[in-house]
Structure formats: structure tokens, C-alpha cells
Design a protein around this nucleic acid. Structure first.
Lengths: 153, 153
DNA sequence: GTTACTGCAAACTTTTTGCACGACA
DNA sequence: TGTCGTGCAAAAAGTTTGCAGTAAC
């Protein structure tokens, strides 16, 4: 949803090459999971990915989707997004970005911002460990939920 | 763990008042859960809180802890921290802060930083919805895990 | 032809819920 | 005393795992 076709195709190709390069087999199921992720920027959970793939591969099982997601995370191709309660959601966007999270409906939208990318790690944290990534989470209520709340109350 | 006693006492008092003010009953169990949270800044999960309280109230049940945490979140006294896979962790620190998260062991440490507090919400996000809080997550490997990795490999 | 992957089923972990008894206000 | 909260048990939700057959290389 709303990932440009060229970008989606590029992602599928990256996925395929990364699987092959790491010695994993490029199965029909894995390719279709990759295809599903490549075109979806709504940060879907496993169930949603499963439903999407099942339209094209009706025999795929939920546990294969779980295992495929595990492999893609392991390879660093996909991130787990733990921003909401409930099922784990996945992020296949390799471009540096941050997240707007609706605390009401669980919507997660990618936010691109040079300012946010520029956030500096405080010196204080060096004693805690090595920082590998800085992610800004903007939590609030999405426009759709605001509208619904205004209408009902 | 490492919450000053004065701050812990202040938190217990805030919890008690908030429960009363909202018409909820101040039960023995709720008070002991509050006491447990007040002195713990490790962002414990329900199981950990349960174990702690059980030392003082051996008859408390796990589902009461779940229900109490739900109530405290509802009242805005506690935040759910969804930064790690596995059980939901809770944050009873009312002071503005951010998180260092170890992706290896799940350690979460509070980070206080004027720079991070000053992060501005990009204009772009106004179309997405209303931002209520900005949280920076510093993900990496904690000192303890780094040490263990160096020793073994 | 091997070996890794899949689908099935069952188990496991985390969280929620219905109900009857007990405790707070 | 009335009602809300608790503990128990069971169920629901989300995820992982063992195994035998199947498909990728």
C-alpha cells in the first residue's frame, strides 16, 4: 500500500539476493512473503502478511510466515516494531526513518526527517553501552481517530 | 532498584491519591503493587512484579497484578514499554526521559537529556495526527553484554 | 541425491475473562 | 450493606517446536 512499484521491485530483488547469499533456499513461500512485505508500508503483523500471501499461495501455513519473518529479521532485512500492544509488527523499509504511532488504533506511519536523523546520542549513555541506532517515536492520536472521537462525543 | 527512597515514597503517595480520586478502591494488593513499582526502575514485566509482591502478599494472584497494571496505565500513572519482544514491560517513572535498550538481553535504562527532550516534531506529522509525546529509543548492546561477548568469542 | 524447508499438530507463553466469594467504602 | 475487587480456573491470543513428507539446489 503506497510503496512505489519500482521500490517494491527493488526490495524483492534485495530479499532474493540476501537469501541466496546467506545460503538459505529461495522458496516459493519466502518469495511470496517478500513480495507481500515489499508492497506494504503499514507495518503489518504476521497474521496480515499470512492473509495477503494466502490469496496467492492458499496452502501456505502461518508457521512458515513466522519462520520466514524470523529469518528476514536475522538477516537484517526487516525490523520488528514493538510500538504497540498485541502482535509484533514488521517494518521492511530500509531507508532511515522514524515512526508516528497512534496509541488508539495502532496505526504506524513512517516519518522522514533530517532533524530527527540528526539527534545526537548523549554522552551519558556511553557508560550504558554501545548505541547502534536512534529511533524517535512520535506517539499520539491519528487524524482518523480524532475525527471519530469528535463525531461520537 | 536504585530509585531513591524519598522518590519511591512520593510515588506511592501519588498512586494512592490517584486511585482514590478516580473512585477505585485502595486495596492491600493494589498498594503492594504500587510499592513494588515505586522502588524498581528496571522496567519490570508482570511476572517480575508478581514475584516481588508475592514475597509480602503470598496469596496475591497473577491476574490481579495484570488488572492492577491495566488500571494504573489507564490512569496514566504507568506506561507500557513496548521496546523488546516477550512480555510487556512497565515504566513508573513520571519524569520526562528516554530509553537505552539492549537488543541482546532486553535491559532498559532511563536516559535523561535536555537535548533529547528538545527534539522538535516535524511539520510533516501534523497531517498524520496530534503528537502527544516524543520518545527517543537508543538501541544497542549494553556494557554487560559487550563484556560477555568479548570473553566468550 | 541431499539437505533444508514446509505443513501439520501440539505445546508453550502471555494475557484476558467469567464466576463466586471476600473486603473496601 | 452494597458494590467493587480478588482468586481460581479456563480460555484466548500470539508464538514456537518436533516430525514426516516435499521441494530446492
Amino acid at each position: 500500500m503506497s510503496v512505489p512499484l519500482s521500490e517494491a521491485e527493488r526490495r524483492i530483488s534485495v530479499f532474493s539476493q540476501a537469501l541466496r547469499r546467506s545460503g538459505l533456499r529461495l522458496t516459493h513461500q519466502r518469495l511470496e512473503v517478500a513480495r507481500e512485505l515489499a508492497g506494504d508500508d503499514t507495518h503489518p503483523d504476521v497474521e496480515k502478511i499470512y492473509e495477503g500471501v494466502r490469496r496467492r499461495v492458499p496452502t501456505i501455513s502461518l508457521d512458515t510466515v513466522y519462520r520466514t519473518m524470523g529469518a528476514l529479521v536475522e538477516l537484517g532485512l526487516v525490523d520488528r516494531v514493538n510500538a504497540t500492544p498485541g502482535p509484533t509488527r514488521y517494518d521492511a523499509n530500509p531507508t532511515r526513518h522514524h515512526h508516528f504511532v497512534c496509541t488508539r488504533c495502532g496505526l504506524i506511519r513512517d516519518v522522514y526527517s533530517g532533524d530527527l536523523d540528526g539527534v545526537r546520542v548523549p554522552d551519558e549513555t556511553h557508560a550504558m553501552g554501545t548505541v547502534e541506532s536512534v529511533k524517535v517515536q512520535l506517539r499520539g492520536i491519528c487524524a482518523e481517530c480524532s475525527r471519530k472521537m469528535r463525531t461520537r462525543h
